[in-house]
Each structure stands twice: as structure tokens, then as C-alpha cells.
């Protein structure tokens, strides 16, 4: 695939009727960004039924294809078959047929987490290399993809981003280099908060629960078992 999303194969175009040629030229000019049917009508000035008919014909001749725009799945977008949808349309490498490829993302997250655990401390390059060598995936994952996945693991507090100190667990990594390790508590932020460990702390009805509110704290029943509590209006 070329940098503008164009596929390498070239072919001879059949002779097209005037309307179809006009539409095809417009769609082709939009390259990997594609074009919405409403915009086609506006730009060519062709009536509705003519555009619909021409699009069907072009699709039948395998000259154009419809693509899903992740930002608005109801909008019909068309693109010349030579092109692959741009990231803005398809959502990038994490999307498949206009949907977020959750399964692929989850497997890749598990793999990244596993390699960091195995190395104790790892750089992005270490993880990328390990995943490439493992052969778990049919397609090759780019360094950028691994970087994005590692970023999401850091956001979930499953991994911690640190600079290597060059000693202890970091001895294999050059001092000052960015690396990743598992969180000390195994990435369980639920246990970290004070509010989440006490009655009333994260009660969804706290706003309504006031002495003169819809619920009064004096009238709620709190069943306490150790440090967990269950609160309900009596």
C-alpha cells in the first residue's frame, strides 16, 4: 500500500456513460478519504435517482466500494477500489469493518502485560520484539500499536511508566530510558482509595442524602460486615 492508501495494482478502465464517468472521477479524486452521497449530489449537481443508479452500476463494475465511516455509520461513503480508507474514516488499525476490534485489542493487551511481567521491567522495544518473535498474530504489529496499547495499560494503572535507574530490576536498561513495570499492588486501584473503602464513600445517592433531603442519613439502614457496608432507605 502506498502512503496515500492507494493499492499498487493498475487496470484499464471500461468505457463509462457520461454520468457514471463524472461520478467516478469525483470519487477517484477523493482518494482514501472517500465521499458521502449527499456531497456527491451537491458537487455534481446530478439528481438523486441518477446518482443512486450510477453508484449501483459503478459498484457492479467493481470500480467503487462503500466504506463505513466510524464517526457516522449512517452516512454512506464511497471510495475507488484502488484505495484503502484513511484513518479518519476507518478509525485506523484498531477498527475492523467500522467496529472497534475489541478482541484483537484485548489479546494484544494481555500479551504486552505478560511480557512486561516476564521481564519485570521492559522497554517498548523489548515488548515489540517479543510479540513479533512469538508469532501469536498473523499480521505484524507496529511499534506505534504497541506504544498505544502500553499507554492504555498505564492509564488503567496496570503498568507504570518509569525512567530506568540502571540498578536492581533496571540493570538491563540504560539509565534514564523510559520503561514499564507492573504496578506494585498488581494494578488494583480499587483498594487504593479511602472513599471507596468506607460507608457513604461512593454512595450513588449521597447527593440526595441530607438531614432535610429526599433521604435522611438517620433513616437509612447500614448493614456493616467488616469494612464493607450496604445502605438502603428503611
Amino acid at each position: 500500500m502506498s502512503s496515500n492508501g492507494k493499492l499498487p495494482q493498475k487496470r484499464k478502465l471500461p468505457q463509462l456513460p457520461e454520468n457514471e464517468q463524472k461520478l467516478y472521477n469525483l470519487i477517484l479524486s477523493k482518494e482514501s478519504m472517500g465521499i458521502w452521497t449527499a456531497d456527491m449530489k451537491k458537487e455534481t449537481g446530478l439528481p438523486n435517482n441518477t446518482v443512486t443508479k450510477a453508484l449501483k452500476s459503478l459498484q457492479a463494475k467493481n470500480l467503487i466500494k462503500d466504506v463505513v465511516n466510524i464517526h457516522n455509520k449512517a452516512k454512506k461513503f464511497y471510495m475507488a477500489v484502488e484505495f484503502e480508507p484513511a484513518k479518519e474514516i476507518s478509525g485506523g488499525t484498531w477498527y475492523s469493518d467500522g467496529n472497534l476490534d475489541v478482541e484483537f485489542i484485548n489479546i494484544l493487551r494481555d500479551q504486552c502485560r505478560m511480557y512486561v511481567e516476564r521481564f519485570k521491567v521492559a522497554t517498548i522495544e523489548n515488548v515489540w520484539q517479543s510479540i513479533r518473535d512469538s508469532g501469536v498474530f498473523n499480521t505484524e504489529c507496529s511499534m506505534q500499536q504497541i506504544k498505544e496499547i502500553m499507554g492504555s495499560l498505564v492509564l488503567d494503572k496496570e503498568l507504570e511508566e518509569l525512567n530506568s535507574t540502571g540498578i536492581g530490576d533496571f540493570s538491563r536498561i540504560q539509565p534514564g530510558k523510559k520503561c514499564y513495570k507492573r504496578y506494585k499492588d498488581g494494578g488494583n486501584p480499587k483498594e487504593q482509595g479511602i472513599l471507596s473503602s468506607i460507608p457513604c464513600g461512593v454512595c450513588p445517592r449521597l447527593t440526595d442524602c441530607t438531614p432535610d433531603g429526599i433521604i435522611s442519613p438517620k433513616l437509612v439502614f447500614i448493614s456493616i460486615n467488616g469494612w464493607t457496608s450496604r445502605c438502603q432507605v428503611s
Binding site: 486501584p189 480499587k190 482509595g193 479511602i194 472513599l195 471507596s196 464513600g201 461512593v202
Partner: peptide, 14 residues
């Protein structure tokens, strides 16, 4: 940050 994040996690999810 930890405290506020923990509150968000418990109230609104991961």
C-alpha cells in the same frame, strides 16, 4: 490524584 481516580473508578467504572 489517586483518591479522585479511585472515586471515579468506583462510581463510574473502568
Amino acid at each position: 490524584n489517586d483518591e479522585a481516580e479511585s472515586l471515579i473508578l468506583k462510581k463510574y467504572g473502568k
